[in-house]
Every structure is written in C-alpha cells, then in structure tokens.
Amino acid sequence: MATLRHEFYETEDKVILSVFDKGADPEQVSVKFEPRKLSYKNGEKELVLEPLRSQIDPDASSYTVGKVKVEIRVVKIAQGRWGQLLGDSPDPLATFATSAPASAATRKPHKNWEGITTEILASDPEVTSDKDPNAGGDNAVNSFFQKLYGDADEDTRRAMMKSYVESGGTTLSTNWEEVGKGKVEGKPPQGSEWKKWGA
C-alpha cells in the first residue's frame, strides 16, 4: 500500500492538513472524519491518522482536492493548540518523537522543519502591541507571516524555518535551493555585533 506524505499547521480552532497526492481525481478521493480519527483514501493510496490529539467536529470538517495536494480542514471541538496531530492525551510538553507510527512512517530521516515550526508556533504566546511595537493592534505582522507560511509550498516552509532557526532569527529566506546547501549564518542588523549567547 502506498503511503502519502503529509504536513499540517493549526490555528486555535482548526487544523489544516495537506496530503501530497499529485493529480488526485476528486471523484476517487474519499476523506472520512470521526471524533478522534481521520481516514484518507484514493485508490491504493491511504492515510489513517488516529488517535487524533483531541476531538474534532466531523460535520464541520471539509476538504478540497487540488492539483498537487488535498487540503483537509479539521475543525476542533475545543479551541487551543494541539502541538502535534496524534496523541492519547493532550500534553503541551509532548514532542514529535512520540507521534504514532502512521505519522512517523511518512517522515524522511532528515530534520523535520515542519514539525519544529508547528511546535514553536504552538508554544509561543500571542504577541500584543504593548509587548512588541512591531505587532499591530490586530497582530497584522504575525498574521501576514502566518498567511505567508500557511500558503507556501513545502520547500518554502522548510526554507523559512531553517533560515530563521539557524540564523538566530536574523534571516528569513523562502529559497530552499539556497538554504538547503548548508548552515544559514546569522546577520545582525547594521551597527550591531553578533555574539553567542552567554559570551
């Protein structure tokens, strides 16, 4: 049975799962939503995710078949970040290594930049304008970057995450061809000096 590569990002009230199934025929694709289970099927290709991290609303959940991927929108029963797709009980400290084999089987052995991104986004407190002058009253800057990341393809997401993490937050690149070649060096703002933590 063919396994399907997938990735996700989340908001407080839903999980958006991308299943990479190029050229999928909408007539052949079937997605079944259950309270703690999601099943995707397209001919011989199948993806079953269970138990989901928390309960979902099967009636409110939906999906769209695109040319390159199938986007599945899963609506959460209880608002809040999951941090990962699978898990028996909600645990904000759980790591991606504890994911069920269904998820691990589709992962390549290289560093999982998508997983790291989701973990960071899940653990970051919301930034308000009184804490960060760059954040608009409606978190416009954060919303822009979340939309940019959410709408990007897999290579662009990996490039954004790898460049940001390796440069210590001083570089954000969307070019995986360039970023994937090696470590991204930190570039401090003009007039600043780069120092390692504790140095």
Rank of each mutant, 00 (worst) to 15 (best):
E34Q: 12
V70M: 09
H110D: 14
G23A: 12
Q190E: 11
A122R: 03
S129D: 06
D124T: 08
T118R: 07
E44V: 13
D151Y: 08
M160L: 14
R5Y: 06
T174S: 08
D21E: 11
T117M: 14
A199W: 02
A122C: 01
G169L: 12
D59Q: 09
A24N: 01
S18I: 05
L4Q: 08
Q190V: 14
P189K: 08
T174F: 00
G198H: 01
K196L: 15
A78W: 06
E154P: 00
D151K: 10
G169T: 03
V68D: 11
D132G: 12
N175F: 00
E12W: 06
Q146F: 13
K108N: 07
K14V: 11
V15T: 10
V184W: 02
R5L: 08
S54W: 05
G43A: 11
G169A: 13
T117S: 15
F96S: 15
A94M: 08
T3L: 13
E178N: 03
E7P: 01
S129F: 00
G83S: 10
L93G: 07
S89R: 05
R53S: 14
P51R: 05
P26N: 12
K162Q: 06
A105V: 03
E178F: 06
T171R: 09
V74A: 02
V15C: 04
V15P: 03
K22P: 09
R157A: 04
D138N: 11
P92K: 14
D130W: 12
G198L: 12
A105S: 05
T118P: 02
S54A: 15
Q84R: 11
K67E: 15
L121W: 06
V29D: 00
K111W: 10
E114R: 00
A102I: 10
D132Q: 13
D21K: 03
K76G: 06
S54Q: 13
G180N: 02
V74Y: 05
R36Q: 02
V19C: 05
N175C: 07
V179C: 14
I56G: 02
W194N: 10
D91F: 09
E12G: 06
M1N: 09
E177L: 04
K41L: 13
A152G: 06
A140S: 03
S123R: 14
D88S: 08
E177K: 03
A100D: 05
Q146V: 07
P90R: 09
D91N: 13
V74W: 05
K32E: 12
T3E: 12
H110G: 11
P101M: 14
G198Y: 03
G136K: 04
D138I: 07
D132T: 12
G83A: 11
S61Y: 06
E71I: 15
G169M: 13
K183R: 04
Q28F: 08
K181N: 05
E7F: 11
M1H: 08
P92S: 15
V165W: 12
L52D: 08
L52I: 13
E46K: 11
K69Y: 01
A102C: 02
E12C: 09
S30Q: 15
Q28E: 13
T170A: 09
V15I: 15
Y63Q: 01
G150Q: 08
A100I: 15
S167C: 06
A100G: 10
V141D: 04
W82L: 03
P92F: 14
K147C: 13
G168D: 03
K67G: 12
I120P: 01
